[in-house]
Amino acid sequence: MAKEVKILVACGSGVATSTVAQESVKKICKDAGIPIKVTKGTISEIPNKQNTVDVVMVTTNYRGQIDKPLIKVFGLISGIGKEKIEQEIIATCKAVMEA
């Protein structure tokens, strides 16, 4: 079985936008045939939680340090540049699966 890609989706409060982005990410990966496990969190949880995941996605700006691939997914909410973000998500997740 293919490796499951662990994703953290984070936003400012862990309420609205990360919930919506999380659903979009699930759908994108499902359609692309990528098995994922998504957790949701806040931006301030990234330093601790990044070690438990393969990819971090944020709906807002993150300036802190990060060792994992970081994808800005604000466009999944606003619709601006959505296709490009979808491609980035798929490419990044596939790279994790093949690693």
Partner: peptide
């Protein structure tokens, strides 16, 4: 937006956004 218990309101939040 005042939403508690957000995990049970995914549809609502998606529609709202």
């Amino acid at each position: 937006i005042a939403i508690n218990d957000n995990d049970n309101h995914v549809d609502f939040l998606q529609h709202l956004m």
